[in-house]
Design a protein around this nucleic acid. Structure first.
Lengths: 269, 269
DNA sequence: CGAGACGTTGCACAATATGCAACGGCCATT
DNA sequence: AATGGCCGTTGCATATTGTGCAACGTCTCG
């Protein structure tokens, strides 16, 4: 491991706590001022560190730009797909992946239980937003005012007697979903079809997608389907971990002791 | 400048474009594979880089955690205050700083006018949200559904004949404010008081605060006050730049307003 | 006006990063 | 099933590169 780079990178979490002077940095790194200066200069040249008027250092804009760019470059579908396929393999049921976009919830991937070749059949189509498990999960994570605004702007078609009847009922359901961290649709869209779904958390901790497992009553009862919940949640967490880029099976020694786990909300079970 | 660190940091923007293999990194850095490997390992140990199953590298979770932590540690008031004081010095008028929080807009700083006539406002107190320039600026940047939800949930007191009359008028005003990148309140709260305000953009590009200059008619006419607009906007940009940590060669996407990129003063030497 | 604190510079030394060459696993091709 | 090529990984000798030191400059405070 490169000592120089190691030291330089150790500066970042240090500055994340708040602005620090050259000497403070040097002291906490246990190196001489001149060394710290050169490291900080290099970080500065790359925009990762910014120098205030009072000459103290802070984290810089490039850091945010990088994080943002990385999120945008994230290929949710590509990363999730193997997991979804594995889940389909184990359960045999149809697996969906969906995202929220501009007031709509759309499927972006689907693994069909019996016809793997035709699994893109309905991708891109909007979901039955008032009843689908994935829709509930995605809407439940929106900020409160937006959530209410969307809910109140929707139609509530009575697909079945179990469909969500109105905005009030929908908002109550969203609150429940938000609390429990998973969602289901038991015959709310088509009488004989049930789904169980879980949220996918992105690097920033917010729900960036949702997945669900669907099966008709004739294959498994709702009860049996709900029994898959732990498995589904575990899959969702695994995908989330991969999206966020949490260290996998690599445990190298000699890392600075302060390497604490992510500070993102939610997924910390 | 430290060559080793320089090379290591050059990897980050490269990975921000998307996942890359060891060899791709080595090639683009123009170093040998073994060197690139060591650099990547160091980055990995610090969590800035994540290794996918296919062994390609991506930016890691720690980057997001750092960015988030840095935003939270930002002391908007502390950074803005000198600029606000300078603006007050030049204009002589009252300068306000405000943020949006949970459906309310509150003042978090204020530099009093040097004229005897002062206006009523207090730090920590909610702003007259339907008319104040800072409120318009902050609400105008909210996502559309939330903005509408908030606007429709408000009361519209007729402080004066020029007060915003209803939600429709308010939303129209917000749209205008959003487009033009500044806001004013001409006698909407108190008959004889005018304000001109500008938004403060945070590191993530969103409006994180707003500032305004206020003066009573008896001191300056509305026209004269509006003439201060360029100065106010420049101040707001300067604060924004400092909040973001101005970077050297990084070209940030500017706000949708036609505002030309800020002129960064010479290298800090 | 002087003392102290803090950031900055140039330099000599050796510690540290570098490139090389060889190894090993994996996949696709024959 | 065998083989060649691709890619990541390792150990090592070399000298490039980073390091600590001491002195200087500047600013603030007593």
């Amino acid at each position: 491991m490169s000592q120089t780079v190691d030291r330089a990178l150790s500066i970042l979490p240090l500055l994340a706590e708040g602005p620090a002077s050259l000497e403070q940095v040097a002291t906490r790194l246990d190196v001489h001022k001149s060394t710290a200066l050169r490291l900080l200069r290099t970080l500065h040249d790359h925009g990762l560190v910014y120098r205030q008027q009072d000459q103290r250092y802070r984290l810089g804009a490039r850091l945010f730009a990088l994080a943002q760019q990385a999120v945008e470059a994230l290929d949710i579908r590509g990363i999730a797909h193997p997991h979804l396929a594995a889940l389909n393999e184990r359960t045999g049921h149809t697996v969906h992946l969906a995202v929220y976009e501009q007031g709509e919830v759309v499927y972006i991937d689907k693994v069909e239980s019996r016809y793997p070749v035709r699994m893109y059949s309905r991708i891109g189509r909007p979901v039955a937003i008032t009843v689908a498990a994935v829709a509930k999960l995605l809407l439940a994570d929106l900020p409160e005012p937006e959530r209410r605004a969307v809910a109140e702007g929707l139609d509530y078609p009575r697909y079945t007697p179990r469909s969500t009847p109105d905005a009030a009922a929908f908002l109550a359901e969203l609150a429940r979903v938000r609390d429990q961290g998973w969602a289901c649709d038991l015959g709310g869209h088509e009488e004989s079809i049930n789904c169980v779904g879980a949220p996918l958390h992105g690097p920033d901790g917010r729900v960036c997608a949702a997945m669900s497992v669907s099966a008709p009553n004739v294959v498994v009862t709702a009860e049996e389907l709900l029994r898959l919940r732990p498995l589904i949640l575990r899959t969702a967490e695994a995908i989330g971990a991969e999206l966020s880029g949490v260290a996998g099976p690599s445990s190298r020694a000699a890392a600075p002791a302060a390497a604490s786990p992510s500070v993102t909300k939610g997924a910390t079970r």
